[in-house]
Design a protein around this nucleic acid. Structure first.
Lengths: 329, 329
DNA sequence: CTTTGTGCCGGTAACGTTACCGGCACGATC
DNA sequence: GATCGTGCCGGTAACGTTACCGGCACAAAG
């Protein structure tokens, strides 16, 4: 376990030259004779030299690393966004550090703090607990960051989010066009702007049909939570169900089956997100699709513009959504 | 965008003391008078000092970081293992860097290389393309690493893997006990030790019932691949299906439904892994459960023992598996 | 009064690497 | 022969931080 790495100093000694020359040789810089260069490279290989990239970056005053703060990377939604970020980051030579917060305020604070301490070049954050004040603090630091998936009032921010009002509208309208009139919305807590916007779309579609909102319940996120709520609502009369996300919808499918209600005959169900399992469940899920991979790519590119000073004014990107019609509605 | 961070030097100047004193004050070390300490801390806060953790670790010659090399972190199986690693790593004050390889040899090499260049303290790797020779190279570096999910012959290695022979045995035996005799195994490519071991269990169970292996096909990983294969095999006669993993099984469920075969009446299906969606599909999936979260925890702890020199001899951990019986078989 | 201790602090070096500058040797140019 | 350019190389400092040591001042102990 003698975990001692070879340094350029070791190479310099062995080659009988200075560390400067070694550095220049290894980095293909001028001011090194062909013979010296060859010798240095050979010795480096012989000794098993592995360059210390952190030392290089430290010296250069950058980390070529960005931080990503998500609530839960094992959630298929974020997993795919992350992949988009990671792929485009790698393309530009950036590393990505992922921080999970489990929707906990302390964790969210600490995640950002750790990333700042690590001197990442920028941060992509999908806030769950942060309010405008916390975001404000970040702005004051004059530190490059992009907000993903959430919309704040402050208009100095870089944000990528999807058109949730339209998504809610499309989902609800689809149910209405299928003749459903008693449409229940199974929503997440409304303190999240996403939940508010999807609800807004829901209301808008109903209004277009001259209807009042029928019913909306807010629940905690997670499969069990949704399953229990549907079982609880067994006596409520509804023929359409618009769920905040696919996890809710998949839970609802299971609960409705247990309650003896047929989907889509008795209740038509629409989800949101189009996670990969949406098409595998039975019946396959009609849902609103967000291009998660694309969202990740856009987020990174926006951050990159900041890092390179290609852009200094704030930018918002509103991603389009579309309805994927399958069997459940 | 004046991304200039405050350093202890700035604090030292403002406080009229040396950087040493500042360092000691900020780290609660002795040899600082209470007044000086107070003053330093105040100035640090006023100036918005954020310590450069990389510089600290650089100075200390450690990174307090480990690397994880997985084929695809958006795969729910690895996502959960990763969570186990991350949680226990954080408990010990370690950061985790995740590298995705997409089952590509070059990526796998580069991932390890990048991690070494970053001087991570250790690596957890779930190899897909590496053969014994590549592993050998790692061993020669005398670098702490743990292999996850795969078993190599070399017995100097630290490995965590699950009892795949038993898993294959349990799955097959269950099908046999349900009266199935024509059991097809939908396997991954046999160059993977995991695939070989699960097949071994399959053969063993059949032998116990005095039967020869019925049929086994090897396919590429992924949902489409499995779906297509089952559609292709429409004319093959089988009443039991043992799948290499749940993704295969879920794809098979869909294909069988399209082919008009009822599960479990016509074909009983058993998957492997018990990913979270296994219980949500219709019919819910009978499968072999690996405690993925636990596997991640164990992997980190084994690595930690190495890092702390608590253990110097190799160690293998074989995790138990068990059968989760649901509707599909 | 001298010694010994101790509380407090600063100087210097170091982690591994690269940027910057200066210098030497040699050949070419006047 | 003096000057200049250029190819090649090394010395020094620096990134931000901490370890180590030495030193000063003052109090306690002999």
């Amino acid at each position: 376990m003698a975990k001692r790495f070879i340094t350029i100093k070791d190479i310099a000694e062995e080659a009988g030259v200075s560390v400067n020359t070694v550095s220049r040789a290894l980095n293909n810089k001028p001011d090194v004779s062909p013979q010296t260069r060859k010798k240095v490279l050979e010795i480096a290989r012989k000794l098993g030299y592995i360059r210390n990239s952190d030392a290089v970056l430290f010296r250069k005053g950058t980390t070529k690393t960005i931080g990503v703060v998500f609530e839960d990377s094992s959630n298929p939604f974020y997993a795919e966004v992350f992949k988009g970020i990671e792929v485009s980051a790698r393309k530009y030579g950036y590393q990505v550090i992922l921080m999970n917060t489990e929707r906990d305020y302390i964790n969210e604070m600490q995640a950002v703090d750790t990333l700042l301490q690590k001197r990442v070049d920028g941060i992509i954050i999908s806030p769950t607990q942060f309010d405008s004040k916390d975001i404000e603090k970040l702005v004051k630091l004059n530190f490059p960051f992009v907000i993903l998936g959430v919309h704040f009032e402050n208009d100095e921010l870089d944000e990528v989010y999807s058109n949730d009002v339209k998504g809610g509208y499309l989902a609800t309208k689809h149910l209405l066009l299928k003749g459903r009139r008693k449409i229940l919305m199974l929503n997440a807590f409304m303190y999240k702007s996403v939940a508010r916007m999807r609800y807004e779309g829901y209301v808008e579609a109903l209004r277009e049909f001259g209807l009042q909102p029928y019913a909306m319940v807010e629940i905690e996120e997670g499969y069990e939570s949704a399953f229990n709520k549907i079982m609880e609502l067994r006596d409520i009369d509804f023929d359409g169900l618009f769920c905040f996300n696919d996890v809710f919808a998949i839970a609802a499918l299971k609960a409705l089956r247990l309650l003896g209600k047929k989907v889509p005959e008795d209740v038509a169900v629409v989800g949101y997100d189009d996670i990969s399992y949406a098409e595998f469940v039975q019946p396959s899920l009609t849902t609103v699709r967000i291009d998660k991979y694309q969202e990740g790519i856009v987020a990174f590119e926006m951050l990159y513009e900041r890092l390179m000073n290609l852009r200094t004014s704030p930018k918002r990107v509103l991603l389009d959504v579309n309805l994927i019609v399958r069997e459940s509605a």
